[in-house]
Design a binder for these strands. Structure first.
Lengths: 217, 217
DNA sequence: AACAAAAATTAGGCAAGCCAAATTTTTCTG
DNA sequence: CAGAAAAATTTGGCTTGCCTAATTTTTGTT
Protein backbone atom coordinates (compact mmCIF):
# COMPACT_ATOMS: atom_id res chain seq x y z
CA UNK A 1 0.00 0.00 0.00
CA UNK A 2 2.82 2.44 0.80
CA UNK A 3 4.13 2.69 -2.75
CA UNK A 4 6.53 5.34 -3.96
CA UNK A 5 3.70 7.32 -5.52
CA UNK A 6 1.52 7.10 -2.41
CA UNK A 7 4.33 8.31 -0.18
CA UNK A 8 5.06 11.20 -2.51
CA UNK A 9 1.43 12.32 -2.49
CA UNK A 10 1.18 12.01 1.29
CA UNK A 11 4.41 13.96 1.77
CA UNK A 12 3.14 16.73 -0.49
CA UNK A 13 -0.15 16.95 1.36
CA UNK A 14 1.72 17.08 4.65
CA UNK A 15 3.95 19.88 3.37
CA UNK A 16 0.94 21.90 2.25
CA UNK A 17 -0.84 21.45 5.57
CA UNK A 18 2.31 22.32 7.50
CA UNK A 19 2.69 25.58 5.65
CA UNK A 20 -0.93 26.46 6.37
CA UNK A 21 -2.11 25.94 2.82
CA UNK A 22 -5.17 24.03 1.75
CA UNK A 23 -4.24 20.72 0.11
CA UNK A 24 -6.22 21.31 -3.06
CA UNK A 25 -6.06 19.20 -6.19
CA UNK A 26 -4.36 21.93 -8.18
CA UNK A 27 -1.65 22.62 -5.62
CA UNK A 28 -0.82 18.93 -5.25
CA UNK A 29 -0.72 18.57 -9.02
CA UNK A 30 1.60 21.54 -9.35
CA UNK A 31 4.03 20.31 -6.70
CA UNK A 32 4.20 16.77 -8.05
CA UNK A 33 4.22 17.87 -11.67
CA UNK A 34 1.30 15.67 -12.70
CA UNK A 35 -2.13 16.57 -14.07
CA UNK A 36 -5.12 17.34 -11.85
CA UNK A 37 -6.83 14.26 -13.25
CA UNK A 38 -4.06 12.09 -11.85
CA UNK A 39 -4.37 13.77 -8.47
CA UNK A 40 -8.12 13.25 -8.31
CA UNK A 41 -7.65 9.60 -9.07
CA UNK A 42 -4.93 9.11 -6.50
CA UNK A 43 -6.86 11.04 -3.86
CA UNK A 44 -9.76 8.63 -4.16
CA UNK A 45 -7.39 5.76 -3.65
CA UNK A 46 -5.73 7.36 -0.63
CA UNK A 47 -9.12 8.20 0.88
CA UNK A 48 -10.33 4.61 0.41
CA UNK A 49 -7.15 3.38 2.09
CA UNK A 50 -7.69 5.70 5.05
CA UNK A 51 -4.75 8.05 4.58
CA UNK A 52 -6.77 11.19 3.84
CA UNK A 53 -10.25 12.62 4.13
CA UNK A 54 -11.56 14.03 0.88
CA UNK A 55 -14.04 16.86 0.52
CA UNK A 56 -14.92 16.92 -3.20
CA UNK A 57 -14.17 20.18 -4.99
CA UNK A 58 -12.35 21.38 -1.91
CA UNK A 59 -9.34 19.27 -1.05
CA UNK A 60 -7.95 16.71 1.39
CA UNK A 61 -6.69 16.52 4.96
CA UNK A 62 -4.45 13.85 6.40
CA UNK A 63 -5.89 11.32 8.82
CA UNK A 64 -3.71 10.24 11.77
CA UNK A 65 -2.67 7.26 9.64
CA UNK A 66 -1.69 9.57 6.80
CA UNK A 67 0.18 11.90 9.12
CA UNK A 68 2.11 8.96 10.49
CA UNK A 69 3.15 7.85 7.01
CA UNK A 70 4.16 11.40 6.11
CA UNK A 71 6.40 11.70 9.16
CA UNK A 72 7.86 8.26 8.58
CA UNK A 73 8.81 9.24 5.05
CA UNK A 74 10.12 12.61 6.18
CA UNK A 75 12.32 10.90 8.77
CA UNK A 76 13.79 8.75 6.03
CA UNK A 77 14.33 11.67 3.72
CA UNK A 78 16.12 13.79 6.26
CA UNK A 79 18.25 11.02 7.71
CA UNK A 80 19.36 10.05 4.22
CA UNK A 81 20.25 13.65 3.38
CA UNK A 82 22.34 13.92 6.51
CA UNK A 83 24.00 10.58 5.86
CA UNK A 84 24.95 11.54 2.32
CA UNK A 85 26.48 14.79 3.56
CA UNK A 86 28.25 13.40 6.62
CA UNK A 87 29.44 10.07 5.29
CA UNK A 88 29.95 10.52 1.59
CA UNK A 89 30.76 14.22 1.61
CA UNK A 90 28.06 15.39 -0.77
CA UNK A 91 27.15 19.06 -0.56
CA UNK A 92 23.90 20.21 1.08
CA UNK A 93 22.62 21.48 -2.25
CA UNK A 94 22.93 18.16 -4.09
CA UNK A 95 21.41 15.60 -1.74
CA UNK A 96 17.72 16.34 -2.17
CA UNK A 97 17.15 14.42 -5.40
CA UNK A 98 18.99 11.34 -4.17
CA UNK A 99 17.10 11.35 -0.87
CA UNK A 100 13.85 11.69 -2.80
CA UNK A 101 14.52 8.32 -4.43
CA UNK A 102 16.25 6.50 -1.58
CA UNK A 103 13.57 7.35 1.00
CA UNK A 104 11.35 4.81 -0.76
CA UNK A 105 14.00 2.14 -1.15
CA UNK A 106 15.99 1.84 2.07
CA UNK A 107 14.91 -0.82 4.55
CA UNK A 108 14.07 -0.04 8.17
CA UNK A 109 17.13 -1.98 9.26
CA UNK A 110 19.54 0.05 7.17
CA UNK A 111 17.83 3.27 8.17
CA UNK A 112 18.21 2.53 11.86
CA UNK A 113 21.89 1.73 11.29
CA UNK A 114 22.30 5.09 9.66
CA UNK A 115 20.53 6.74 12.57
CA UNK A 116 22.92 5.15 15.06
CA UNK A 117 25.94 5.77 12.85
CA UNK A 118 25.09 9.47 12.77
CA UNK A 119 24.72 9.61 16.56
CA UNK A 120 20.93 9.88 16.70
CA UNK A 121 20.83 13.30 15.07
CA UNK A 122 17.96 15.72 15.51
CA UNK A 123 18.40 17.92 12.43
CA UNK A 124 19.18 17.44 8.76
CA UNK A 125 21.79 19.44 6.80
CA UNK A 126 19.27 22.22 6.18
CA UNK A 127 18.28 22.58 9.81
CA UNK A 128 14.99 20.70 9.45
CA UNK A 129 14.05 18.52 12.43
CA UNK A 130 14.21 14.76 11.87
CA UNK A 131 10.96 13.14 13.06
CA UNK A 132 11.45 10.51 15.76
CA UNK A 133 10.57 6.86 15.14
CA UNK A 134 7.29 7.34 17.00
CA UNK A 135 6.31 10.10 14.59
CA UNK A 136 6.86 13.01 16.98
CA UNK A 137 8.57 16.07 15.55
CA UNK A 138 10.08 19.13 17.12
CA UNK A 139 8.58 22.32 15.75
CA UNK A 140 11.08 24.94 14.70
CA UNK A 141 10.47 28.08 16.74
CA UNK A 142 12.12 30.57 14.45
CA UNK A 143 11.18 33.69 12.53
CA UNK A 144 11.86 34.60 8.95
CA UNK A 145 14.99 36.68 8.53
CA UNK A 146 12.79 39.19 6.72
CA UNK A 147 10.73 39.65 9.91
CA UNK A 148 13.71 40.18 12.20
CA UNK A 149 13.95 43.64 13.83
CA UNK A 150 17.01 45.75 13.02
CA UNK A 151 19.86 45.33 15.43
CA UNK A 152 18.81 41.82 16.49
CA UNK A 153 21.45 39.19 17.12
CA UNK A 154 20.45 35.82 15.68
CA UNK A 155 21.60 32.62 14.00
CA UNK A 156 20.55 30.72 10.90
CA UNK A 157 18.07 27.96 11.79
CA UNK A 158 16.62 26.49 8.61
CA UNK A 159 16.43 26.75 4.83
CA UNK A 160 14.36 24.59 2.48
CA UNK A 161 16.25 21.78 0.77
CA UNK A 162 14.25 22.07 -2.43
CA UNK A 163 16.12 24.83 -4.28
CA UNK A 164 19.69 23.73 -4.97
CA UNK A 165 20.67 26.99 -6.60
CA UNK A 166 19.62 29.00 -3.56
CA UNK A 167 21.58 26.65 -1.31
CA UNK A 168 24.67 27.07 -3.47
CA UNK A 169 24.27 30.83 -3.21
CA UNK A 170 24.06 30.67 0.58
CA UNK A 171 27.10 28.38 0.73
CA UNK A 172 29.04 30.76 -1.53
CA UNK A 173 28.52 33.63 0.92
CA UNK A 174 29.13 31.29 3.85
CA UNK A 175 25.71 31.86 5.31
CA UNK A 176 24.91 28.34 6.45
CA UNK A 177 22.99 26.64 9.26
CA UNK A 178 24.18 27.83 12.66
CA UNK A 179 25.91 30.96 11.39
CA UNK A 180 25.60 33.70 14.04
CA UNK A 181 25.04 37.24 12.83
CA UNK A 182 23.60 40.65 13.61
CA UNK A 183 21.03 42.37 11.44
CA UNK A 184 22.47 45.90 11.07
CA UNK A 185 19.60 47.51 9.20
CA UNK A 186 17.53 47.18 6.11
CA UNK A 187 17.50 49.46 3.11
CA UNK A 188 14.02 50.97 2.55
CA UNK A 189 11.57 50.10 -0.23
CA UNK A 190 12.47 46.42 -0.54
CA UNK A 191 16.18 46.98 -0.44
CA UNK A 192 18.70 44.48 0.89
CA UNK A 193 19.29 43.59 4.54
CA UNK A 194 22.69 44.45 5.88
CA UNK A 195 24.12 41.60 7.93
CA UNK A 196 27.22 41.45 10.09
CA UNK A 197 28.97 38.11 10.68
CA UNK A 198 31.93 38.62 12.96
CA UNK A 199 33.97 41.19 11.03
CA UNK A 200 32.33 40.45 7.73
CA UNK A 201 29.46 42.48 6.24
CA UNK A 202 26.89 41.01 3.86
CA UNK A 203 23.88 42.19 1.87
CA UNK A 204 20.94 39.86 1.51
CA UNK A 205 18.01 40.54 -0.80
CA UNK A 206 14.49 40.63 0.66
CA UNK A 207 13.34 37.60 -1.36
CA UNK A 208 16.20 35.55 0.04
CA UNK A 209 15.49 36.83 3.55
CA UNK A 210 11.95 35.51 3.37
CA UNK A 211 13.24 32.00 2.75
CA UNK A 212 15.66 31.88 5.65
CA UNK A 213 14.43 30.94 9.10
CA UNK A 214 16.47 32.34 11.99
CA UNK A 215 16.53 31.91 15.74
CA UNK A 216 16.71 35.20 17.69
CA UNK A 217 19.06 34.86 20.63
CA UNK B 1 14.34 1.71 -20.45
CA UNK B 2 16.51 0.31 -17.65
CA UNK B 3 13.70 -0.25 -15.20
CA UNK B 4 13.97 -2.33 -12.05
CA UNK B 5 12.30 -5.30 -13.74
CA UNK B 6 14.50 -5.05 -16.84
CA UNK B 7 17.66 -4.97 -14.77
CA UNK B 8 16.52 -7.97 -12.75
CA UNK B 9 15.83 -10.01 -15.88
CA UNK B 10 19.16 -9.04 -17.44
CA UNK B 11 21.02 -9.88 -14.24
CA UNK B 12 19.37 -13.28 -14.10
CA UNK B 13 20.21 -14.04 -17.72
CA UNK B 14 23.80 -12.98 -17.08
CA UNK B 15 24.02 -15.25 -14.04
CA UNK B 16 22.70 -18.20 -16.03
CA UNK B 17 25.15 -17.60 -18.88
CA UNK B 18 28.04 -17.18 -16.46
CA UNK B 19 27.33 -20.52 -14.85
CA UNK B 20 27.23 -22.16 -18.25
CA UNK B 21 23.48 -22.75 -18.24
CA UNK B 22 21.13 -22.01 -21.07
CA UNK B 23 18.98 -18.96 -20.30
CA UNK B 24 15.67 -20.68 -20.95
CA UNK B 25 12.25 -19.27 -20.17
CA UNK B 26 11.65 -21.78 -17.40
CA UNK B 27 14.93 -21.15 -15.61
CA UNK B 28 14.50 -17.40 -15.72
CA UNK B 29 10.95 -17.78 -14.41
CA UNK B 30 12.11 -20.01 -11.59
CA UNK B 31 14.89 -17.66 -10.49
CA UNK B 32 12.72 -14.55 -10.58
CA UNK B 33 9.69 -16.31 -9.12
CA UNK B 34 7.33 -15.25 -11.92
CA UNK B 35 5.37 -17.30 -14.45
CA UNK B 36 6.79 -18.41 -17.77
CA UNK B 37 4.19 -16.26 -19.50
CA UNK B 38 5.64 -13.18 -17.84
CA UNK B 39 9.13 -14.16 -18.91
CA UNK B 40 8.10 -14.68 -22.53
CA UNK B 41 6.51 -11.26 -22.56
CA UNK B 42 9.50 -9.55 -21.03
CA UNK B 43 11.93 -11.35 -23.30
CA UNK B 44 10.18 -9.95 -26.35
CA UNK B 45 10.50 -6.51 -24.91
CA UNK B 46 14.19 -6.95 -24.08
CA UNK B 47 14.87 -8.38 -27.53
CA UNK B 48 13.11 -5.44 -29.21
CA UNK B 49 15.20 -3.05 -27.08
CA UNK B 50 18.41 -4.80 -28.12
CA UNK B 51 19.45 -6.29 -24.79
CA UNK B 52 19.07 -9.95 -25.78
CA UNK B 53 18.77 -12.20 -28.80
CA UNK B 54 15.80 -14.53 -28.62
CA UNK B 55 15.55 -17.95 -30.22
CA UNK B 56 11.90 -18.97 -29.77
CA UNK B 57 11.35 -22.19 -27.85
CA UNK B 58 15.02 -22.22 -26.97
CA UNK B 59 16.10 -19.22 -24.88
CA UNK B 60 18.02 -15.95 -24.94
CA UNK B 61 21.60 -14.71 -25.03
CA UNK B 62 22.80 -11.29 -23.99
CA UNK B 63 23.93 -8.82 -26.62
CA UNK B 64 26.95 -6.61 -25.83
CA UNK B 65 24.45 -3.95 -24.74
CA UNK B 66 22.75 -6.43 -22.41
CA UNK B 67 26.03 -7.63 -21.02
CA UNK B 68 27.03 -4.06 -20.30
CA UNK B 69 23.82 -3.43 -18.39
CA UNK B 70 24.26 -6.67 -16.44
CA UNK B 71 27.77 -5.73 -15.36
CA UNK B 72 26.69 -2.21 -14.51
CA UNK B 73 23.97 -3.57 -12.24
CA UNK B 74 26.31 -6.14 -10.75
CA UNK B 75 28.84 -3.43 -9.96
CA UNK B 76 26.16 -1.53 -8.11
CA UNK B 77 24.99 -4.59 -6.24
CA UNK B 78 28.43 -5.56 -5.05
CA UNK B 79 29.58 -2.09 -4.14
CA UNK B 80 26.41 -1.56 -2.13
CA UNK B 81 26.88 -4.85 -0.29
CA UNK B 82 30.42 -3.92 0.61
CA UNK B 83 29.37 -0.44 1.68
CA UNK B 84 26.66 -1.79 3.95
CA UNK B 85 29.13 -4.17 5.59
CA UNK B 86 32.04 -1.76 5.89
CA UNK B 87 30.24 1.43 6.78
CA UNK B 88 27.11 0.40 8.59
CA UNK B 89 28.37 -2.84 10.08
CA UNK B 90 25.76 -5.17 8.63
CA UNK B 91 26.71 -8.82 8.45
CA UNK B 92 27.64 -10.48 5.16
CA UNK B 93 24.56 -12.69 5.36
CA UNK B 94 22.03 -9.85 5.61
CA UNK B 95 23.06 -7.40 2.89
CA UNK B 96 21.83 -9.21 -0.20
CA UNK B 97 18.16 -8.21 -0.01
CA UNK B 98 18.96 -4.56 0.66
CA UNK B 99 21.45 -4.43 -2.19
CA UNK B 100 18.88 -6.03 -4.45
CA UNK B 101 16.62 -3.00 -3.96
CA UNK B 102 19.23 -0.26 -3.72
CA UNK B 103 21.09 -1.29 -6.88
CA UNK B 104 18.14 0.13 -8.82
CA UNK B 105 17.78 3.30 -6.78
CA UNK B 106 21.21 4.77 -6.11
CA UNK B 107 22.46 7.48 -8.48
CA UNK B 108 25.75 7.24 -10.33
CA UNK B 109 27.08 10.13 -8.28
CA UNK B 110 26.40 8.47 -4.93
CA UNK B 111 27.72 5.17 -6.20
CA UNK B 112 31.02 6.72 -7.27
CA UNK B 113 31.31 8.37 -3.87
CA UNK B 114 30.86 5.00 -2.24
CA UNK B 115 33.51 3.54 -4.54
CA UNK B 116 36.01 6.19 -3.51
CA UNK B 117 35.00 6.02 0.15
CA UNK B 118 35.71 2.28 0.12
CA UNK B 119 39.14 2.82 -1.48
CA UNK B 120 38.26 1.52 -4.97
CA UNK B 121 37.69 -2.05 -3.81
CA UNK B 122 37.96 -5.05 -6.10
CA UNK B 123 35.87 -7.59 -4.23
CA UNK B 124 32.58 -7.66 -2.37
CA UNK B 125 32.07 -9.20 1.10
CA UNK B 126 31.57 -12.64 -0.43
CA UNK B 127 34.73 -12.53 -2.51
CA UNK B 128 32.96 -11.75 -5.77
CA UNK B 129 34.81 -9.37 -8.10
CA UNK B 130 33.31 -5.89 -8.52
CA UNK B 131 33.04 -5.04 -12.23
CA UNK B 132 34.90 -1.87 -13.22
CA UNK B 133 33.08 1.18 -14.54
CA UNK B 134 34.00 0.22 -18.10
CA UNK B 135 32.29 -3.16 -17.64
CA UNK B 136 35.44 -5.26 -17.35
CA UNK B 137 35.45 -7.93 -14.69
CA UNK B 138 38.17 -10.10 -13.23
CA UNK B 139 37.38 -13.79 -13.51
CA UNK B 140 37.85 -15.77 -10.32
CA UNK B 141 40.43 -18.47 -10.96
CA UNK B 142 39.49 -20.82 -8.18
CA UNK B 143 38.34 -24.39 -7.76
CA UNK B 144 35.49 -25.79 -5.74
CA UNK B 145 36.56 -26.96 -2.31
CA UNK B 146 34.99 -30.28 -3.21
CA UNK B 147 37.46 -30.63 -6.11
CA UNK B 148 40.55 -29.85 -4.04
CA UNK B 149 43.07 -32.71 -3.69
CA UNK B 150 43.78 -34.03 -0.19
CA UNK B 151 46.67 -32.35 1.54
CA UNK B 152 46.38 -29.13 -0.47
CA UNK B 153 46.96 -25.81 1.21
CA UNK B 154 44.42 -23.19 0.12
CA UNK B 155 42.30 -20.19 1.10
CA UNK B 156 38.62 -19.32 0.81
CA UNK B 157 37.99 -17.25 -2.31
CA UNK B 158 34.26 -16.90 -2.87
CA UNK B 159 30.80 -17.94 -1.69
CA UNK B 160 27.45 -16.96 -3.23
CA UNK B 161 25.62 -14.12 -1.47
CA UNK B 162 22.19 -15.59 -2.13
CA UNK B 163 21.81 -18.06 0.75
CA UNK B 164 21.87 -16.17 4.05
CA UNK B 165 21.55 -19.29 6.14
CA UNK B 166 24.61 -20.86 4.54
CA UNK B 167 26.57 -17.65 5.09
CA UNK B 168 25.57 -17.63 8.77
CA UNK B 169 26.75 -21.21 9.06
CA UNK B 170 30.12 -20.37 7.55
CA UNK B 171 30.47 -17.36 9.83
CA UNK B 172 29.60 -19.50 12.84
CA UNK B 173 32.50 -21.85 12.11
CA UNK B 174 34.72 -18.90 11.20
CA UNK B 175 35.25 -20.10 7.68
CA UNK B 176 35.09 -16.78 5.85
CA UNK B 177 36.67 -15.14 2.79
CA UNK B 178 40.46 -15.26 2.97
CA UNK B 179 40.65 -17.96 5.61
CA UNK B 180 43.76 -20.09 4.98
CA UNK B 181 43.47 -23.83 5.58
CA UNK B 182 44.74 -27.28 4.67
CA UNK B 183 42.50 -30.03 3.37
CA UNK B 184 43.53 -33.06 5.53
CA UNK B 185 41.47 -35.71 3.83
CA UNK B 186 37.97 -36.59 2.89
CA UNK B 187 35.83 -39.36 4.32
CA UNK B 188 34.75 -41.85 1.61
CA UNK B 189 31.27 -42.28 0.15
CA UNK B 190 30.22 -38.61 0.35
CA UNK B 191 31.51 -38.11 3.84
CA UNK B 192 32.74 -34.79 5.21
CA UNK B 193 36.01 -33.06 4.35
CA UNK B 194 38.46 -32.66 7.20
CA UNK B 195 39.93 -29.16 7.23
CA UNK B 196 42.74 -27.73 9.33
CA UNK B 197 42.83 -24.00 10.08
CA UNK B 198 45.91 -23.21 12.15
CA UNK B 199 45.41 -25.42 15.17
CA UNK B 200 41.71 -25.86 14.63
CA UNK B 201 40.10 -28.87 12.89
CA UNK B 202 36.78 -28.67 11.07
CA UNK B 203 34.44 -31.01 9.22
CA UNK B 204 32.63 -29.70 6.17
CA UNK B 205 29.88 -31.62 4.39
CA UNK B 206 30.28 -32.38 0.68
CA UNK B 207 27.25 -30.26 -0.28
CA UNK B 208 28.77 -27.26 1.46
CA UNK B 209 32.15 -27.94 -0.12
CA UNK B 210 30.63 -27.72 -3.58
CA UNK B 211 29.45 -24.19 -2.87
CA UNK B 212 32.77 -22.85 -1.68
CA UNK B 213 35.33 -21.60 -4.17
CA UNK B 214 38.93 -21.77 -3.00
CA UNK B 215 42.28 -20.60 -4.28
CA UNK B 216 45.03 -23.25 -4.10
CA UNK B 217 48.32 -21.71 -2.98
C1' DA C 1 7.36 -43.48 -35.10
C1' DA C 2 3.75 -42.21 -31.90
C1' DC C 3 2.19 -40.46 -27.80
C1' DA C 4 2.74 -38.19 -23.40
C1' DA C 5 5.06 -34.82 -20.75
C1' DA C 6 7.46 -30.67 -20.47
C1' DA C 7 8.50 -26.22 -22.20
C1' DA C 8 7.19 -22.19 -24.50
C1' DT C 9 4.03 -19.10 -26.38
C1' DT C 10 -0.38 -16.72 -27.18
C1' DA C 11 -4.65 -14.67 -25.67
C1' DG C 12 -7.15 -12.15 -22.48
C1' DG C 13 -7.34 -9.75 -18.05
C1' DC C 14 -6.06 -6.91 -13.93
C1' DA C 15 -3.89 -3.06 -11.06
C1' DA C 16 -1.04 1.02 -10.69
C1' DG C 17 -0.10 5.48 -12.54
C1' DC C 18 -0.10 8.42 -15.72
C1' DC C 19 -2.40 11.40 -19.66
C1' DA C 20 -5.87 14.29 -22.75
C1' DA C 21 -10.41 15.71 -23.51
C1' DA C 22 -15.02 16.48 -22.00
C1' DT C 23 -17.98 17.78 -18.31
C1' DT C 24 -19.40 19.63 -13.91
C1' DT C 25 -18.90 22.62 -9.96
C1' DT C 26 -17.15 26.57 -7.77
C1' DT C 27 -15.39 31.09 -7.73
C1' DC C 28 -14.54 35.45 -9.52
C1' DT C 29 -15.81 39.67 -11.81
C1' DG C 30 -18.27 43.19 -13.97
C1' DC D 1 -26.72 38.12 -10.38
C1' DA D 2 -25.16 36.48 -14.79
C1' DG D 3 -21.47 35.01 -17.46
C1' DA D 4 -16.65 33.82 -17.70
C1' DA D 5 -12.75 31.76 -15.72
C1' DA D 6 -10.75 28.55 -12.76
C1' DA D 7 -10.85 24.32 -10.31
C1' DA D 8 -12.23 19.72 -9.95
C1' DT D 9 -13.97 15.60 -11.69
C1' DT D 10 -15.23 12.01 -15.04
C1' DT D 11 -14.33 9.29 -19.03
C1' DG D 12 -11.57 6.71 -21.86
C1' DG D 13 -6.97 5.36 -23.11
C1' DC D 14 -1.98 4.18 -22.67
C1' DT D 15 2.24 1.51 -20.64
C1' DT D 16 4.44 -1.61 -17.48
C1' DG D 17 4.38 -5.83 -15.35
C1' DC D 18 2.18 -9.31 -13.64
C1' DC D 19 -1.41 -13.32 -13.80
C1' DT D 20 -4.43 -17.67 -15.56
C1' DA D 21 -5.95 -20.56 -19.16
C1' DA D 22 -5.52 -22.27 -23.70
C1' DT D 23 -2.59 -23.54 -27.42
C1' DT D 24 1.60 -24.82 -29.84
C1' DT D 25 6.19 -26.70 -30.08
C1' DT D 26 9.78 -29.53 -28.45
C1' DT D 27 11.53 -33.39 -25.98
C1' DG D 28 11.53 -37.86 -24.01
C1' DT D 29 9.87 -42.59 -23.81
C1' DT D 30 8.53 -46.84 -25.29
Amino acid sequence: MATTANEDYIKTIYALESSGQRASTSRIAQRLDVTMASVTGKIKHLAAAGYVRHTPYYGVTLTPKGRKLALHTLRRHRLIELFLVKTLGLRWDEVHADAEVLEHAISDKVLERMYEYLGRPEFDPHGAPIPAEDGSIKELTGVRLSDLPSGARSRVLHVSDADGEFLRYLASIDFTIGTAFTLRDRAPYGGPLRIRIGRRELDIGPDAAERILVCPS
